[in-house]
Computed example of a mutant assay.
Amino acid sequence: MPIHTLQSDNYTIEAGNIEESSFSQLLNRFSDSKKVIIVDENTHEYCLEFLITQFEELTDAEVMLLPAGEENKVLEVSFQVWEALSEYRVGRSDLIINLGGGVITDMGGFIASVFKRGVHFINIPTTLLAMVDASVGGKTGIDLGPYKNQLGVFNTPDAVYIDKRFLSSLPESEWLNGYAEMLKHAIVFSKTHWKTIHAKTPSQITEEDIIESIAIKNQIVLADPKENGIRKLLNFGHTAGHAIEGYLLGTESPVPHGIAVAWGMSMEAELAFKTGVLNEVDRAWIQSVLASHFPPLPDFTPVKQELLSLMTNDKKNKSGKVSFVFPSEIGQADVNYSFDVDAPVLESLFFKSSDLY
């Protein structure tokens, strides 16, 4: 398949075999610059050798190996990277290459953005989640305790390169993570995309499906780069989902981002229905599709106060109210539905899958 190029805000997103992309030309632009490749334990094992052997310009690149996992997307790890960058004498004209999933692209972009007030960086996402969501859009960040992405900046990479071959080593659970975000893009913006992907298993997702999902997000981001309006649509499922993810991160049973978001979408679809925004047919369709692909929604009632407390510190909130995105039907959604944390209607968030099916 030929390289498919999307133009985003001051950078390009290219999908296809990376050897056929503009990556080599970009490296030539930095021929006299230092290059640093940030990887985690997984991409160090499965992806790094391929990249270095394909591009001789990376033969002398410094490799920075970070521990894998959301629990490591924190200031302490970032600080260690900044110290290493200082030891390598990396400057603003040098290049950081983020080779990894959402944790690496989020954190690597943040590290590059604040070091010496900004170092060039590119993203080469290696998970479906990173390809369709985390690596595009210009959001960078790290977590602060149980609060997701509390520290971060908006800053765009020089380029993003999407090569589906990096997905070949992923377990099914990693495909699920990205599939959740693809379903979210469809629910809030494109019923056509929903009809294309909702009945597929994650491993049946094609490169064309990935490109379409990226195009949806890119279109939304271009219209609202700093999330003042329409970009808030991309937060569907994330108010409840981030609270769930953050809460469980501190337990013995953490869940990946995609599963937390899938549960969040099911919960927020229920709340949208109970408040009269979402019709019953599409509510049931959304919840049944999510239930067919993702683990059953647990009963979070015993910890609802903890989850609501986490929701009150969500960065999307305004005037002390908890904010949500509600679909009005599949393919359309509205932003800025807000409730006091003690509003009785928020009880609609807390149910388990067996209550519905």
Rank of each mutant, 00 (worst) to 15 (best):
P2D: 09
P2K: 09
P2S: 10
I3P: 03
Q7A: 10
Y11I: 02
T12C: 10
T12M: 11
E14A: 03
E14V: 02
S21T: 05
F23C: 00
F23D: 00
L27Y: 12
N28G: 12
D32P: 05
I37H: 12
I37M: 10
N42Q: 10
L48R: 12
E49D: 12
I52M: 10
T53M: 13
Q54A: 13
V63W: 05
L66S: 05
P67S: 13
G69L: 00
N72P: 05
N72Q: 06
V74E: 08
E76Y: 11
E76P: 05
V77N: 08
F79S: 15
W82V: 13
E83P: 04
R89G: 06
R89M: 10
L99G: 04
G101K: 00
I104D: 04
T105K: 02
D106T: 00
G108V: 00
F110Q: 02
F110A: 07
I111W: 09
F115K: 14
F115P: 14
V119A: 04
T127P: 08
T127N: 06
A130D: 02
M131C: 03
G137A: 07
G137E: 07
G138E: 12
K139H: 02
K139D: 03
T140F: 07
G141N: 02
D143I: 13
L144F: 15
G145C: 12
P146E: 04
P146Q: 05
Y147I: 14
Y147N: 15
N149I: 05
V153E: 13
V153A: 14
T156Q: 15
A159P: 08
I162L: 13
D163Y: 11
F166P: 08
S168F: 11
E174R: 04
L176R: 14
E181F: 08
L183A: 06
F189S: 12
K191R: 14
K191D: 05
W194P: 01
A199R: 14
K200I: 09
S203R: 15
Q204F: 09
I210Y: 12
I210E: 03
E212Y: 07
K217Q: 01
Q219S: 15
Q219M: 14
I220R: 03
K226W: 12
I230H: 10
R231E: 02
R231F: 04
L233N: 07
E245G: 03
G246Q: 08
G246C: 11
L249I: 01
P256N: 13
P256C: 10
G258N: 05
A260R: 07
A262K: 11
A262N: 07
W263M: 07
G264L: 08
M265L: 11
M267Q: 06
E268L: 07
T275S: 03
E280V: 07
A291T: 15
S292C: 13
L297F: 06
P298M: 02
F300I: 03
T301R: 14
L310Q: 03
M311E: 09
T312L: 10
F324S: 01
V325K: 11
P327I: 14
G331Q: 02
Q332W: 15
S338I: 05
D340W: 08
D342C: 03
P344G: 06
E347T: 15
S348K: 00
L349T: 00
F351D: 06
S353E: 05
S353G: 10
